[in-house]
Design a binder for these strands. Sequence first.
DNA 1: TTGTAAGCGTTATCAA
DNA 2: TTGATAACGCTTACAA
Lengths: 339, 339
Amino acid sequence: MNAKGPRIQEVAVEAGVSTATVSRTLSNPDLVSEKTREAVLAAVEKTGYRINRAAQNLRKRQAGAILVLLPNLGNPFFSQILSGIESVFATSDLSVLIADTNGIKQDQLTGYFRDTRADGVILLDGGIPRAVLNELAQTTPDNRIVFACEWKPGTDLPSVRSDNRGGAQQAIAHLVQLGHSKIGHIAGPRNNVLTKERLAGFEAAMRNQGLEIVPRWVVDGGDFSLDAGAQAARQFIEMDERPTAVFCGSDLIAMGFISEMHKRGISVPNDFSVVGFDDIEIADRFIPSLTTIRQNRTQLGVLAATTLLGQLSGRAVAAQDNVQLVDVLLIKRGSTAAI
Amino acid sequence: MNAKGPRIQEVAVEAGVSTATVSRTLSNPDLVSEKTREAVLAAVEKTGYRINRAAQNLRKRQAGAILVLLPNLGNPFFSQILSGIESVFATSDLSVLIADTNGIKQDQLTGYFRDTRADGVILLDGGIPRAVLNELAQTTPDNRIVFACEWKPGTDLPSVRSDNRGGAQQAIAHLVQLGHSKIGHIAGPRNNVLTKERLAGFEAAMRNQGLEIVPRWVVDGGDFSLDAGAQAARQFIEMDERPTAVFCGSDLIAMGFISEMHKRGISVPNDFSVVGFDDIEIADRFIPSLTTIRQNRTQLGVLAATTLLGQLSGRAVAAQDNVQLVDVLLIKRGSTAAI
DNA sequence: TTGTAAGCGTTATCAA
DNA sequence: TTGATAACGCTTACAA
């Protein structure tokens, strides 16, 4: 900012007190007598005083901001989590910084901390290199890093996540209930932690139901995209024997799959039952509407933000709260049918 | 930040120069002899020095950040513009702050400036109250506000926008080419500036083509959502005489419309041709795939960011560049067909 | 080309 | 409960 308004000194003069008292009134009103407090507040009002954040941050040795690191800002899935995060910090006086890990270089990334640009970080990217994470952790002694949605196995940083395994199991249970026993899975990106959890949930559920896991029917999506689903559909089409149902690692995969099948004249749910994961907005209006596992993205964001806010105010995360699991919900729609 | 690294003084000692020289080396390398520059850089490397942004900002009387105000962070449309913005600032040393105007109160909003939290603003929300905008403009003498995507009529702030009228005209021309003459329009939210432009484009195109604008066929969507489209579909179904094609104010409206029509046994494109606006990711995989007007959202963000960055470095926006129009593109797909 | 030193606008310590 | 005052870590005249 260029246009500079009144400074604390002017307020002090106006109120007939010292700058220290003005400062106290604004940050620790209890330390000040009611009379002075009123006088100061009136002077603030009259002068239109606004605190200078840079000065405050310098003096308090803080950044006054938290950083949200996303793997892909253009992905609506992440931006909805971001929305939840933002809603929490909107009422604090911390600013929310964002950065996309997509194009970012390693040293830039850790620079965010060493630069004193952020007092804490919310990581939406479980794929962050361990070296970077280590450096982040080093420069933030009190563990001011929280994972949301994704996380990094082998680290003990607090994280907020959906019940991915449970979701997969609900999906399979639903398909079994509809009479399916030949069930496939289209996974997400191979090294993604969500992919692994959902796959593990799928396998556990299949075993529990006494169903055979056919390796050819468990295909690698490569990523969570529409194209991944379309690609998988082509693989299934070429098989001699196909499953009657597939559980997909994401809604986009599911929609890409259905869309490609449709092009080839194969109908969902008549020829194939399909379950997605996420419940993105369009799922309800897709043709057919998509049966899926709903993740509460806003809540993921809100919880992560609340956790970080707690840490910043000195509250340590209790050991049993280190992993906060958010329930998911099976939403039955038109893409699944009895066999 | 708590963990405090080396300060500029330590680097100076290490390099055997004054703090002023270190500062100069880092921000104005040209003012320093090559020999000293190398010594300083080596000292920076050795000590692991990182600048303290708060101190720098205080001294330079700046915020070191720009603010992006979005009407709805959860909306993928906006977050993709945000992605473009972020990519530009990632290489500057300005941070990108975000705030959602959705829940924000007026005084909080202007507070972002008076607080010296941001050196400039990119506004994605044309619906911002004029009072707020005025106050923003007052506290930012050099017009460090840029509109992206939406804008506020009657203000002369720089803006970057898609060619909404042109897009509407392309849509109508396409439908006419397919033999349609009974064409309706499902508009977006009534007071939205994009809605008005697209409606104006629709009307102009219809007149140019010598076609009648049937008032009943121009319906108010209320917003840009799927539900708005579904709601409009119900209205059309009840009509005695219907158009053979509709141009929609957004892809979501178009998909909601198609989805609802499908439920009622009315087929797109056989019974209805539908054109959307935006070309969101799913448009290509929707069933039927959606003919639409593609907006380059990333470019909108990039241009807005570049414009603001220019203003922050003192370059005024040339009068003829005050409105930067980004071309849109008709994407022909499966939701439109010859009559 | 480099160094000295005076702030930038707060907050926190200490004393009153 | 309040006030003086010394930092916080950097940049930038001005001087050398």
